[in-house]
Design a protein around this nucleic acid. Structure first.
Lengths: 195, 195
DNA sequence: CAAAAACCTTAATCTGGATTAAGAAAATGT
DNA sequence: ACATTTTCTTAATCCAGATTAAGGTTTTTG
């Protein structure tokens, strides 16, 4: 049962009957995606939300100078989508790309809305994870406004210890909002201090 | 009917029957709040979400150096709460304060959850506004990471033309993430350019 | 309507982090 | 296993925006 990890994630928040579960599984579309391939391009409509079963994706924007800004990492057991485009079904400016070979399942907005109509518990599940996701964006916004780069890096290390080990530094730099050069400098400073 | 403005807001997203509406109105608590008074203090549990009928509030954090960072303005027709504290019912670090004499209605998390159980349309309403709110935090986070202060100020003027005229500059500075001195400088620069 | 408080402006100086550049190390594909 | 691409580091220079300080203006409140 390759979807079991999603089922377990859902059960953490609500209870689905076997029928509900079967109904959900019929509309999920599994997909394999290789490192450096895209789930969503810029100016494309995000028709689907994506849940990661295995591997890791990144969601990011590219600014006018060609710099990437990472909005979200999506490792195993996480949902990722361009929420703006997904709810409006208009083209968005977010790119979603695999940073490892990954296995995902996708749910279309149309199928999601049908599930909301038929299974209120399902709408509750998404209401709950959207509330939590809102909190994490708000926290990150405040951190960006009120903390120094060093403090943000320390916070990242604390919050995502597993990602620190497996992600290239330049991606972490892009997530916390500094250049790779400056992250490297911060790490050197830290190293010297602790010796 | 002082709550009509909230009812109209809800009807924009879902349909409530008269019974649903009556049910909602019995649990709403109206409240008058004078300028400079607080709806929520730091380290307090946000038991209620607040909808503004009249006036304007600000939600903000205070950092270690005593600087305010404004998370959200809540003018008429907006909801405001410390979502972290509201969903977890743990103490949060956000302060909500009236910046004008205001009229609000409040809904407790407990009442909200009961409404979710009894009236699925109600859960849908909050699911939808939470999705939208998530998008606006995410956009603001990306703007903070990728735009200059000047661009952020221009964006604010475009997005909230009415707020620009009625809010003191120092609050706008705190929202876009610059010092009041620097906002003043940007405005002087703009003025000189356009003469 | 006056005193106090809050707000705005200007200007000089400072600094966290960006930019540029270039070489070293590591990971990846074939 | 090796060549290519991607990452990481270090160091010099630069700049957007912070900080500090001080005077002027507007708003609030008694």
């Amino acid at each position: 049962m390759p979807f079991e990890i999603l089922h377990a994630n859902i059960q953490k928040h609500i209870h689905l009957t076997n029928d509900d579960k079967a109904r959900l599984f019929t509309v999920l579309k599994p997909k394999s995606i290789k490192r450096k391939n895209f789930i969503l391009h810029e100016n494309q409509v995000s028709t689907h939300a994506t849940f990661v079963l295995k591997g890791c994706l990144k969601a990011y924007t590219v600014n006018d100078n060609g710099f990437e800004h990472i909005i979200q990492f999506a490792p195993e057991d996480w949902w990722v989508t361009d929420m703006y485009s997904f709810i409006s079904q208009k083209p968005g400016n977010i790119i979603i790309e695999a940073i490892e070979n990954s296995e995902v399942v996708q749910l279309s907005r149309a199928d999601q809305l049908r599930l909301f109509d038929d299974i209120p518990a399902f709408e509750r599940y998404f209401r709950i994870i959207t509330e939590k996701s809102l909190v994490s964006y708000r926290t990150r916004l405040m951190d960006n406004m009120s903390l120094t780069a060093t403090e943000r890096y320390a916070g990242f290390c604390e919050q995502y210890p597993t990602l620190i080990t497996k992600l290239p530094q330049k991606l972490i730099a892009s997530y916390i909002g500094v250049t790779p050069e400056f992250l490297s400098k911060m790490r050197a400073r830290q190293r010297n201090k602790s010796i």
